[in-house]
Amino acid sequence: MKILVVDDSKAMRMIVMRTLRQAGFGEHTIEEAGNGIEALKNIEQKPADLILCDWNMPEMNGIDLLKKLRETGNGVKFGFVTSEGNPEMRQIAMDAGAAFLITKPFTVDAFQGALQPVLTS
């Protein structure tokens, strides 16, 4: 399985990838992109099975990326990993087709709880 980590912060991409390994998802292929545009280019080359995406990013933010994917018929599993997690944003994310929203700061347990059902479904 391919997991694509999308965040404009290289530091946060490192932390997310480290947390994925600590949560037991290290056997999957993990790739990274710095914004929504880069993510679209990445999955053009090879589709992802799961996208873990920040919300606030330059060029193309996370919610616009998710909407773009769904508009073009791409149903890839999609979860947000973001510092913003109020109920309104969660609702916007779910309405747009996200499977989950993990708020920063997060824990290994939060990753396991959110990703396990999605990756095994």
Binding site: D8, S9, A11, M12, N56, M57, P58, T82, S83, E84, G85, N86, E88, T103, K104, P105
Partner: peptide
Amino acid sequence: GEVANMVGGAYKSMLPTPVNLSL
């Protein structure tokens, strides 16, 4: 920048909506 983003983002979630967070 990411520390400010995480602390500011978490604080934003306690504020009345709608509010936007900058990069």
